[in-house]
Amino acid sequence: MMHFPLRLLRSAVLVTACGLLLVAVAGVLGEDRVAVAFGGVLLGLLYGAGPAVEGRPVPGRVWLALVTAGWVVLAVAAPAFVWLAFPLLFAYLHVLPLWGAMFGVAVLTSAAIAAAAWHAGGLTVPLVVGPAVAAVVVTLLALACRALTAEADRPPGRG
């Protein structure tokens, strides 16, 4: 059974991902980039399939690799898709063991910074600080949820 704080966090992440995806898809549709918008819809469907593979190590990792690959393609295609990296960070922290998640968060954050800088025509302080701070906050939230879940799962009298 999933604990309430964890369910609440996952719901917030899903709503954030959907909102960012809608903004990105609407933006590229406004530019008449239908193929990129279609790719965004496909990425959303794939991202939404995450709970179906939850708790299964190999399918979860395959899902994460596919979502990441789709994100990379879309982040290169249009700047609005770059910001979908942040809900994806939670997926890394949920699906992978801690050491793999930390590595994945660092790589994904670096890729988001690089893609944003590429679209902007150069690297700026906000393009580095924003994603870096977001990655730290996401990581701390995910680790706090892990700790809360472990505490709640601990049998009474053990502390």
Rank of each mutant, 00 (worst) to 15 (best):
C18I: 13
G19A: 02
V36Y: 01
G48D: 03
V25Q: 10
G39N: 04
L21C: 08
G30D: 07
G30C: 09
G48R: 01
V53T: 12
R61A: 10
G44D: 12
A12T: 12
V23H: 10
V13M: 14
P51C: 05
A35E: 14
G60M: 07
E31G: 00
A37T: 05
G48C: 02
R61T: 13
A24L: 08
T16M: 15
G30N: 05
A35G: 08
V62N: 13
A35Y: 07
L22N: 02
G48L: 11
A49S: 13
A52W: 10
V53I: 00
L14T: 15
T16H: 06
L29W: 09
A52Q: 02
A49Q: 06
A17Q: 09
T16V: 04
D32F: 11
V58L: 15
V41Q: 01
G39Y: 11
A26I: 09
A35S: 14
G55Y: 12
V23W: 12
V23A: 13
L42S: 13
V28W: 06
A26L: 12
V28Y: 04
V23Y: 10
R33L: 14
G44Q: 03
L43S: 04
A26Q: 08
G30L: 06
Y47V: 10
G60Q: 12
L20F: 10
D32T: 07
G50V: 09
C18L: 15
G50C: 00
R61E: 09
A12N: 10
P51K: 02
L45F: 05
R33V: 00
E31S: 01
G55N: 04
R56W: 14
A52H: 01
L21S: 11
D32Y: 08
